[in-house]
Design a protein around this nucleic acid. Sequence first.
DNA 1: CCGAATTAGTTGACTTTGACAACTAATAAT
DNA 2: ATTATTAGTTGTCAAAGTCAACTAATTCGG
Lengths: 155, 155
Amino acid sequence: MELNIPLGYLLGQSLRVFRNQLVFEFKEKEIKLTLDQFVILHLLNANCDLIQQDLANQLQKDKSIIVRQINSLLENQYVVRLTNKEDKRKKNLILTKRGFEILNQMKEIASELSGKLLSGVSETDLKVFRNVLGTIHENGGAEEEFINCGLNQPK
Amino acid sequence: MELNIPLGYLLGQSLRVFRNQLVFEFKEKEIKLTLDQFVILHLLNANCDLIQQDLANQLQKDKSIIVRQINSLLENQYVVRLTNKEDKRKKNLILTKRGFEILNQMKEIASELSGKLLSGVSETDLKVFRNVLGTIHENGGAEEEFINCGLNQPK
DNA sequence: CCGAATTAGTTGACTTTGACAACTAATAAT
DNA sequence: ATTATTAGTTGTCAAAGTCAACTAATTCGG
C-alpha cells in the first residue's frame, strides 16, 4: 500500500502529535508557553552567548519571529536581553532564575511525553532515528554545532 | 554534549528544513501550494471517499482549518467537493485532472528533495526511521489505516 | 583610512494558521 | 420522538509567518 509517503507528511504528523500533547500538558500545569518557546529556553540554557540570529538559524525561522518570541519571554521575565560588549549589534540572551525553573518543569513533561510516544522503540532504533533527523538537518545546510559553555546554571 | 534534546525540537527542525526547501522549489516552478495542501492532494489521490473530517484526523488539525484549505484548493480547481449520497452530512473530496497533474509535479519535487535530505542514510536506517515516526503517531492515539481504493486515477 | 557591503536587530503591514465557540443540517441512539 | 452525536461552516481573535524597510555596528576592499 505504501506509495512513497512524503517525508514532510510523516514528520508533520509526528511533530503535531508531540506538540499538541505537550502544550496540552503544559496548560494543565498552568504553563502558558509554546513548543518553540520551550525549545528557545532549552537552547539558551544549553549554550552560552546565544544571540537572536543563532536562534533564527537553529529554528529555521525569520529573525523577526524570534524578536517577538523573545519579547514575550522578556515580558514573562524568563530571559534578559543584553547588548554584547564586543559587538554592539549583538544581543546576548540569558536565562533568568524564573526561566530556569520553568524550563526544568517543561523538560520533565517533555521527557515523560517522549517516553510515552516512543514506547516500544528500542534504544538502538531510537539512536538511528535521532541520527536520521540530524542528517536531514545537515543535508539541509545546517550550521556548525554550538559550543556548550559547560555550566547549565541560571544567572 | 547531548543533554537530552527534546524530541519536538528535532522533529520541528527537520520538518522546517523540508518544508522551507519544498515550498522554495514549488515557487521556482510557479506552484503556489503549501506542504499541507500537497499532503491533502496526496491523501485524496491515495484514498478514495475521503471526507474533511478524515483529513482533519490525519493532519491533526481542527476541521475549520481543513475547510479553509479545501476552499483554497477549490478556488484553484484542484479538487471538487461533493455531498455524499448516503450521508448528506459528509462531503467527498475528489481530485480533478488539474489537481492530479500538479500533484504529480509536486510528488517529483518532493521525492527528489527527500532523496537529497536523506542522502547518506541506508535503506535499513530509513526503514527504522519511518517506523519510529509511525510509532509516534500510533502511540499518540492514531486512527486506523485507510483502505486504498486501488486505482489512483483522477476523475 | 574611507566608503561600500554585510550583519544583527527592530518595526510595520499584511496574510495565513490555529484555537475555539457557535451554529446548521443530517444522522444515530435511546 | 426526543436527544445526542457528527460533519461541516462561519466568525472572532491571537499567534505565527512573510516581507520589506530601516537603524546601528562591524567588516571588507581598495
